[in-house]
Design a protein around this nucleic acid. Structure first.
Lengths: 138, 138
DNA sequence: TTTTGTGCAAACTGTTTGCATTAAG
DNA sequence: CTTAATGCAAACAGTTTGCACAAAA
Protein backbone atom coordinates (compact mmCIF):
# COMPACT_ATOMS: atom_id res chain seq x y z
CA UNK A 1 0.00 0.00 0.00
CA UNK A 2 0.92 3.60 -0.52
CA UNK A 3 3.25 4.91 2.07
CA UNK A 4 2.68 8.00 4.07
CA UNK A 5 4.08 11.27 2.83
CA UNK A 6 5.13 13.47 5.70
CA UNK A 7 5.16 17.21 6.07
CA UNK A 8 8.65 18.45 6.57
CA UNK A 9 10.18 21.88 6.74
CA UNK A 10 12.25 21.18 3.64
CA UNK A 11 9.30 19.95 1.63
CA UNK A 12 7.30 22.99 2.57
CA UNK A 13 10.00 25.49 1.69
CA UNK A 14 10.79 23.77 -1.60
CA UNK A 15 7.14 23.79 -2.52
CA UNK A 16 6.58 27.41 -1.52
CA UNK A 17 9.63 28.70 -3.32
CA UNK A 18 8.72 26.77 -6.44
CA UNK A 19 5.23 28.22 -6.40
CA UNK A 20 6.58 31.75 -6.12
CA UNK A 21 8.50 31.36 -9.35
CA UNK A 22 7.18 31.44 -12.85
CA UNK A 23 10.58 30.61 -14.23
CA UNK A 24 10.31 26.81 -14.27
CA UNK A 25 13.55 26.28 -12.45
CA UNK A 26 15.82 23.31 -12.64
CA UNK A 27 16.50 21.37 -9.47
CA UNK A 28 19.76 23.18 -9.14
CA UNK A 29 18.30 26.65 -9.49
CA UNK A 30 15.73 25.83 -6.86
CA UNK A 31 18.44 24.45 -4.65
CA UNK A 32 20.19 27.84 -4.64
CA UNK A 33 17.00 29.59 -3.69
CA UNK A 34 16.00 27.15 -0.99
CA UNK A 35 19.47 27.34 0.50
CA UNK A 36 18.83 30.96 1.45
CA UNK A 37 16.09 29.80 3.78
CA UNK A 38 17.52 26.46 4.80
CA UNK A 39 21.29 26.74 4.57
CA UNK A 40 21.84 23.06 5.24
CA UNK A 41 19.57 21.51 2.59
CA UNK A 42 21.18 19.20 0.14
CA UNK A 43 20.59 18.91 -3.55
CA UNK A 44 19.49 15.33 -3.04
CA UNK A 45 16.63 16.55 -0.89
CA UNK A 46 15.52 18.89 -3.64
CA UNK A 47 15.49 16.06 -6.16
CA UNK A 48 13.74 13.64 -3.86
CA UNK A 49 11.06 16.15 -2.97
CA UNK A 50 10.39 17.35 -6.48
CA UNK A 51 10.01 13.76 -7.51
CA UNK A 52 7.65 12.95 -4.67
CA UNK A 53 5.59 16.07 -5.15
CA UNK A 54 5.23 15.47 -8.84
CA UNK A 55 3.97 11.97 -8.07
CA UNK A 56 1.53 13.55 -5.66
CA UNK A 57 0.45 15.86 -8.44
CA UNK A 58 1.08 19.11 -6.63
CA UNK A 59 4.05 19.98 -8.81
CA UNK A 60 4.51 19.46 -12.49
CA UNK A 61 7.55 18.04 -14.22
CA UNK A 62 7.99 19.82 -17.52
CA UNK A 63 8.57 17.58 -20.47
CA UNK A 64 10.42 19.92 -22.75
CA UNK A 65 13.85 18.61 -22.41
CA UNK A 66 16.90 20.57 -22.78
CA UNK A 67 19.35 18.86 -20.64
CA UNK A 68 17.90 19.39 -17.23
CA UNK A 69 14.54 18.58 -15.82
CA UNK A 70 12.42 21.58 -15.05
CA UNK A 71 9.61 21.95 -12.59
CA UNK A 72 6.53 24.08 -12.33
CA UNK A 73 4.57 24.82 -9.19
CA UNK A 74 1.53 25.74 -11.22
CA UNK A 75 -0.35 22.58 -12.09
CA UNK A 76 -3.24 24.33 -13.74
CA UNK A 77 -3.61 23.90 -17.45
CA UNK A 78 -1.37 26.07 -19.48
CA UNK A 79 1.21 25.52 -22.12
CA UNK A 80 4.85 26.42 -22.53
CA UNK A 81 6.95 28.12 -25.15
CA UNK A 82 10.63 27.45 -25.21
CA UNK A 83 13.14 29.75 -26.83
CA UNK A 84 15.19 27.79 -29.34
CA UNK A 85 18.10 30.07 -28.75
CA UNK A 86 18.45 30.65 -25.04
CA UNK A 87 16.27 27.86 -23.71
CA UNK A 88 14.04 30.11 -21.63
CA UNK A 89 10.58 28.69 -20.95
CA UNK A 90 7.52 30.88 -20.62
CA UNK A 91 3.91 30.13 -19.73
CA UNK A 92 0.99 30.75 -22.01
CA UNK A 93 -2.46 30.77 -20.49
CA UNK A 94 -5.39 30.34 -22.81
CA UNK A 95 -9.03 30.76 -21.92
CA UNK A 96 -9.98 27.95 -24.20
CA UNK A 97 -7.28 25.55 -23.21
CA UNK A 98 -9.73 22.75 -22.50
CA UNK A 99 -11.37 23.23 -25.81
CA UNK A 100 -8.08 22.88 -27.67
CA UNK A 101 -7.18 19.94 -25.55
CA UNK A 102 -10.36 18.07 -26.32
CA UNK A 103 -10.13 19.02 -29.94
CA UNK A 104 -6.77 17.30 -30.25
CA UNK A 105 -7.61 14.36 -28.05
CA UNK A 106 -10.63 13.63 -30.20
CA UNK A 107 -8.61 13.49 -33.35
CA UNK A 108 -5.96 11.36 -31.78
CA UNK A 109 -7.88 8.76 -29.89
CA UNK A 110 -9.12 6.97 -32.97
CA UNK A 111 -5.66 6.65 -34.37
CA UNK A 112 -3.96 4.72 -31.64
CA UNK A 113 -4.27 1.77 -29.32
CA UNK A 114 -3.04 3.92 -26.45
CA UNK A 115 -5.47 5.00 -23.82
CA UNK A 116 -4.97 8.74 -24.09
CA UNK A 117 -4.70 10.47 -20.75
CA UNK A 118 -3.08 13.78 -21.35
CA UNK A 119 -1.99 16.26 -23.90
CA UNK A 120 1.05 18.45 -23.62
CA UNK A 121 1.57 21.21 -26.09
CA UNK A 122 4.93 22.85 -26.42
CA UNK A 123 5.54 25.76 -28.67
CA UNK A 124 8.98 26.79 -29.72
CA UNK A 125 10.22 30.07 -31.04
CA UNK A 126 12.32 33.08 -30.22
CA UNK A 127 11.86 35.05 -27.04
CA UNK A 128 11.80 38.82 -27.16
CA UNK A 129 15.41 39.12 -26.06
CA UNK A 130 16.68 36.74 -28.68
CA UNK A 131 14.61 38.04 -31.54
CA UNK A 132 16.08 41.48 -30.97
CA UNK A 133 19.55 40.12 -30.93
CA UNK A 134 20.03 40.38 -34.67
CA UNK A 135 23.62 39.31 -34.73
CA UNK A 136 22.85 35.89 -33.37
CA UNK A 137 21.54 34.50 -36.62
CA UNK A 138 24.08 34.44 -39.35
CA UNK B 1 30.28 30.67 -42.71
CA UNK B 2 28.72 27.27 -42.44
CA UNK B 3 31.17 24.47 -42.58
CA UNK B 4 30.99 21.57 -44.95
CA UNK B 5 29.21 18.43 -43.85
CA UNK B 6 30.78 15.37 -45.41
CA UNK B 7 29.28 12.10 -46.44
CA UNK B 8 30.82 9.33 -44.47
CA UNK B 9 30.09 5.64 -44.22
CA UNK B 10 29.19 6.03 -40.55
CA UNK B 11 26.84 8.90 -41.17
CA UNK B 12 25.10 7.01 -43.91
CA UNK B 13 24.62 3.84 -41.90
CA UNK B 14 23.42 5.72 -38.85
CA UNK B 15 20.93 7.60 -40.94
CA UNK B 16 19.68 4.54 -42.80
CA UNK B 17 19.26 2.46 -39.70
CA UNK B 18 17.45 5.26 -37.92
CA UNK B 19 15.06 5.64 -40.85
CA UNK B 20 14.27 1.93 -40.81
CA UNK B 21 13.06 2.15 -37.25
CA UNK B 22 9.81 3.53 -35.99
CA UNK B 23 10.87 2.98 -32.42
CA UNK B 24 12.50 6.37 -31.77
CA UNK B 25 15.67 4.87 -30.43
CA UNK B 26 18.06 6.40 -27.96
CA UNK B 27 21.63 6.99 -29.09
CA UNK B 28 22.62 3.86 -27.29
CA UNK B 29 20.02 1.66 -28.90
CA UNK B 30 21.04 2.92 -32.30
CA UNK B 31 24.66 2.31 -31.42
CA UNK B 32 23.94 -1.39 -30.88
CA UNK B 33 22.23 -1.63 -34.23
CA UNK B 34 24.86 0.28 -36.16
CA UNK B 35 27.58 -1.84 -34.59
CA UNK B 36 26.26 -4.85 -36.47
CA UNK B 37 27.16 -3.14 -39.71
CA UNK B 38 30.18 -1.19 -38.58
CA UNK B 39 31.73 -3.11 -35.71
CA UNK B 40 34.22 -0.37 -34.92
CA UNK B 41 31.89 2.62 -34.56
CA UNK B 42 31.97 4.44 -31.31
CA UNK B 43 29.14 5.81 -29.30
CA UNK B 44 30.65 9.28 -29.65
CA UNK B 45 30.22 9.04 -33.40
CA UNK B 46 26.57 8.19 -32.98
CA UNK B 47 26.04 11.20 -30.77
CA UNK B 48 27.98 13.54 -33.00
CA UNK B 49 26.12 12.42 -36.08
CA UNK B 50 22.66 12.54 -34.59
CA UNK B 51 23.41 16.03 -33.41
CA UNK B 52 24.69 17.15 -36.80
CA UNK B 53 21.85 15.53 -38.68
CA UNK B 54 19.27 17.10 -36.44
CA UNK B 55 20.87 20.48 -37.09
CA UNK B 56 20.68 19.69 -40.79
CA UNK B 57 17.03 18.88 -40.30
CA UNK B 58 17.13 15.38 -41.71
CA UNK B 59 16.61 13.78 -38.32
CA UNK B 60 14.40 14.88 -35.50
CA UNK B 61 15.30 15.11 -31.85
CA UNK B 62 12.27 14.17 -29.82
CA UNK B 63 11.45 16.52 -27.02
CA UNK B 64 9.62 14.20 -24.69
CA UNK B 65 12.16 13.72 -22.07
CA UNK B 66 12.51 10.74 -20.03
CA UNK B 67 16.08 10.45 -19.21
CA UNK B 68 17.59 9.88 -22.60
CA UNK B 69 17.36 11.80 -25.82
CA UNK B 70 15.44 10.03 -28.53
CA UNK B 71 15.67 10.45 -32.25
CA UNK B 72 13.32 10.00 -35.16
CA UNK B 73 14.30 9.51 -38.76
CA UNK B 74 10.89 10.65 -39.90
CA UNK B 75 10.85 14.42 -40.03
CA UNK B 76 7.38 14.68 -41.51
CA UNK B 77 4.70 16.13 -39.32
CA UNK B 78 3.30 13.75 -36.84
CA UNK B 79 2.89 13.63 -33.13
CA UNK B 80 3.96 11.28 -30.41
CA UNK B 81 2.27 9.46 -27.56
CA UNK B 82 4.35 8.32 -24.67
CA UNK B 83 3.33 5.55 -22.33
CA UNK B 84 3.41 6.85 -18.79
CA UNK B 85 4.20 3.40 -17.53
CA UNK B 86 6.83 1.88 -19.78
CA UNK B 87 8.05 4.98 -21.60
CA UNK B 88 7.41 3.62 -25.08
CA UNK B 89 6.86 6.28 -27.73
CA UNK B 90 4.57 5.77 -30.70
CA UNK B 91 3.79 7.89 -33.74
CA UNK B 92 0.40 9.27 -34.56
CA UNK B 93 -0.20 10.49 -38.07
CA UNK B 94 -3.12 12.80 -38.62
CA UNK B 95 -4.45 13.94 -41.97
CA UNK B 96 -5.24 17.33 -40.58
CA UNK B 97 -2.07 17.87 -38.68
CA UNK B 98 -1.44 21.24 -40.29
CA UNK B 99 -4.90 22.37 -39.49
CA UNK B 100 -4.49 21.54 -35.82
CA UNK B 101 -1.11 23.15 -35.82
CA UNK B 102 -2.37 26.41 -37.24
CA UNK B 103 -5.33 26.31 -34.97
CA UNK B 104 -3.13 26.27 -31.91
CA UNK B 105 -0.55 28.66 -33.25
CA UNK B 106 -3.25 31.21 -33.92
CA UNK B 107 -4.52 31.08 -30.39
CA UNK B 108 -1.08 31.31 -28.95
CA UNK B 109 0.60 34.01 -30.96
CA UNK B 110 -1.46 36.83 -29.48
CA UNK B 111 -0.62 35.79 -25.97
CA UNK B 112 3.12 36.00 -26.03
CA UNK B 113 6.05 38.12 -27.05
CA UNK B 114 7.75 35.06 -28.50
CA UNK B 115 7.98 34.69 -32.22
CA UNK B 116 6.28 31.33 -32.54
CA UNK B 117 8.07 28.96 -34.86
CA UNK B 118 6.86 25.52 -34.07
CA UNK B 119 4.35 23.45 -32.22
CA UNK B 120 5.05 20.10 -30.66
CA UNK B 121 2.19 18.08 -29.34
CA UNK B 122 2.81 15.19 -27.05
CA UNK B 123 0.10 12.94 -25.81
CA UNK B 124 0.53 10.69 -22.88
CA UNK B 125 -1.34 7.62 -21.86
CA UNK B 126 -1.12 3.87 -21.53
CA UNK B 127 0.06 1.68 -24.35
CA UNK B 128 -1.83 -1.49 -25.18
CA UNK B 129 0.62 -3.68 -23.30
CA UNK B 130 0.44 -1.65 -20.16
CA UNK B 131 -3.29 -1.12 -20.15
CA UNK B 132 -3.77 -4.88 -20.22
CA UNK B 133 -1.39 -5.38 -17.40
CA UNK B 134 -4.01 -5.02 -14.72
CA UNK B 135 -1.77 -5.73 -11.78
CA UNK B 136 0.39 -2.75 -12.47
CA UNK B 137 -2.00 -0.20 -11.06
CA UNK B 138 -2.88 -0.71 -7.48
C1' DT C 1 8.52 3.49 18.80
C1' DT C 2 8.15 3.04 14.02
C1' DT C 3 8.84 4.78 9.68
C1' DT C 4 9.91 8.49 6.66
C1' DG C 5 13.04 12.15 5.48
C1' DT C 6 17.62 14.39 5.66
C1' DG C 7 22.58 15.59 4.68
C1' DC C 8 26.47 14.00 2.85
C1' DA C 9 29.37 11.77 -0.27
C1' DA C 10 30.01 8.42 -3.42
C1' DA C 11 28.17 6.12 -7.43
C1' DC C 12 25.84 6.14 -11.74
C1' DT C 13 24.31 7.27 -16.39
C1' DG C 14 23.94 9.63 -20.47
C1' DT C 15 26.53 12.87 -23.08
C1' DT C 16 30.44 15.58 -24.51
C1' DT C 17 35.27 16.45 -25.45
C1' DG C 18 40.43 16.25 -26.45
C1' DC C 19 43.51 14.06 -29.11
C1' DA C 20 45.98 11.43 -32.44
C1' DT C 21 44.70 9.27 -36.69
C1' DT C 22 42.00 8.51 -40.92
C1' DA C 23 39.28 9.79 -44.76
C1' DA C 24 36.58 13.11 -47.74
C1' DG C 25 36.73 16.63 -50.86
C1' DC D 1 46.75 19.41 -49.17
C1' DT D 2 43.19 20.94 -46.16
C1' DT D 3 39.57 20.29 -43.28
C1' DA D 4 36.10 17.33 -41.27
C1' DA D 5 35.13 12.97 -39.08
C1' DT D 6 36.47 8.92 -36.43
C1' DG D 7 37.69 5.85 -32.39
C1' DC D 8 39.01 5.83 -28.04
C1' DA D 9 39.22 7.10 -23.41
C1' DA D 10 38.81 10.39 -20.14
C1' DA D 11 35.97 14.16 -18.41
C1' DC D 12 31.61 16.12 -17.40
C1' DA D 13 26.96 17.20 -15.70
C1' DG D 14 22.82 16.07 -13.84
C1' DT D 15 20.69 12.74 -11.08
C1' DT D 16 20.30 8.93 -7.92
C1' DT D 17 21.56 6.17 -3.98
C1' DG D 18 23.45 4.09 0.50
C1' DC D 19 24.05 5.10 4.94
C1' DA D 20 23.95 6.90 9.61
C1' DC D 21 21.38 10.17 11.94
C1' DA D 22 17.20 13.25 12.78
C1' DA D 23 12.38 14.28 12.75
C1' DA D 24 7.46 13.25 12.10
C1' DA D 25 3.58 10.62 13.29
Amino acid sequence: MKKLVRKTKQREVIYNELCKLTSHPTADELFMIVKDKLPRVSLGTIYRNLEIMSEEGIVKKIEICGKMKRFDGNTSDHLHVKCIKCGKIEDIFLDNFDYINNFITNFVKDKTAFKIMGCDIQMSGLCSDCRNDALSFN
